[in-house]
């Protein structure tokens, strides 16, 4: 029997998360090197068929759907139970999942239950010549150190992968092969009473291609409107430095940095942010960093690809006007 690479996917019912397509594309690439097949597992509730079918264009050989009301919300107990049963049945060589709140909550528990090796937040995956082992590269120390990790003697080899790291490759023409399965589930000591969608828009830092972040240089809470205006023009998410969150100018969900969220968008605008190391570790792996700050000595300029030393209240409105 051919080896299996399994992608544990994510679905909200309506949609399949983009990281699932990214991982099925990457899995198909790895599968070629070790002659394996790619199975995407979709746990969820009332999952639409159209986004499932797209998985066969992004490299999946088969999709297994566990459609169960218990999986409507992210209930760790039900997710672990169902996915564990599935993985035990399939005995894959490799298991990949997104480094999302779902992946980062569920997979560490599964790795213990399966006695498997797990590497978090990978930004690169490859197959080692000769051994056919999965090489997993990940940042540590807020991106100051990279480590390549493998799991030599245990199976499966498990990894969570940062969203937006791998490109979606839609050139595959695999045959549609969807299977619905059910596993014995049971009670749960956890109950999700309500899943609240944030009323605030422009908050989803993890999924954003562009982030516009504001710092203390804004002077006061009201001036964040300038950040929102620029973000709106660019279709970007709004980020913030820790001092602005501590001063309650903006909510914690926007905080980028060591005690907030780590982000790696294509473009990161640091506006009125001096760039303390605690901020830098949360954003320095962004593709492009644009800094606007009136302090010529601000450390942010040491890592900015394009820096403007000037008054943000002059520069930002002019930029908004041009967009």
């Amino acid at each position: 029997m051919r080896d299996k690479i399994i992608v544990v996917g994510e679905s909200t019912g309506q949609n399949v998360h983009h990281v699932t397509y990214e991982l099925s594309s990457k899995a198909a690439e790895l599968a070629k090197k070790i002659d394996a097949k790619v199975i995407v597992l979709l746990p969820g509730y009332t999952i639409n068929r159209i986004p499932i079918e797209k998985l066969f264009k992004t490299g999946a050989d088969k999709v297994v759907v566990i459609d169960n009301e218990n999986l409507k919300f992210l209930n760790d107990i039900h997710f672990v139970r169902n996915i564990e049963a599935f993985l035990k049945e399939e005995s894959p060589k490799i298991v990949l999942t997104g480094a999302t709140p779902q992946g980062r909550s569920i997979i560490p528990k599964l790795a213990i239950k399966l006695g498997a090796g797990l590497t978090a937040d990978c930004t690169e995956l490859d197959i080692e010549d000769g051994t056919n082992l999965l090489l997993q590269t990940r940042p540590a120390f807020g991106g100051n150190l990279m480590a390549t990790i493998k799991t030599p003697n245990r199976l499966p080899q498990m990894a969570t992968v940062r969203p937006k790291v791998f490109k979606i490759n839609e050139t595959y023409t695999k045959e549609v092969n969807i299977e619905y399965r059910n596993y014995i589930d049971g009670n749960s000591d956890i109950k999700i009473i309500e899943a609240v969608k944030s009323m605030e828009e422009l908050i989803n830092l993890a999924d954003a291609d562009i982030i516009v972040s504001g710092g203390r240089g804004l002077g006061k809470k009201e001036n964040f409107s300038l950040i929102y205006e620029l973000a709106d023009k660019l279709g970007a998410a709004v980020g913030a430095s820790r001092p602005t969150v501590d001063a309650e100018w903006i909510s914690y969900a926007h905080q980028v940095g060591q005690t907030g969220t780590t982000v790696s968008p294509k473009i990161y605008f640091a506006i009125g942010i001096s760039g303390a190391i605690q901020h830098q570790v949360g954003m320095k792996s962004s593709d492009y960093i644009i800094a606007i700050n009136k302090d010529i000595n601000a450390p942010i300029f040491n890592i900015a690809d394009y820096g403007i030393v000037g008054d943000l209240f002059e520069v930002v409105p002019k930029l908004i006007k041009k967009l």
Binding site: G115, M146, R154
Partner: peptide, 18 residues
């Protein structure tokens, strides 16, 4: 279960245009 094969420093992020 896991082994670190190698650890390395990412390419330095240098300031660009200012």
């Amino acid at each position: 279960p896991t082994r670190v094969v190698r650890a390395f420093s990412p390419p330095p992020k240098k300031g660009g245009i200012k």
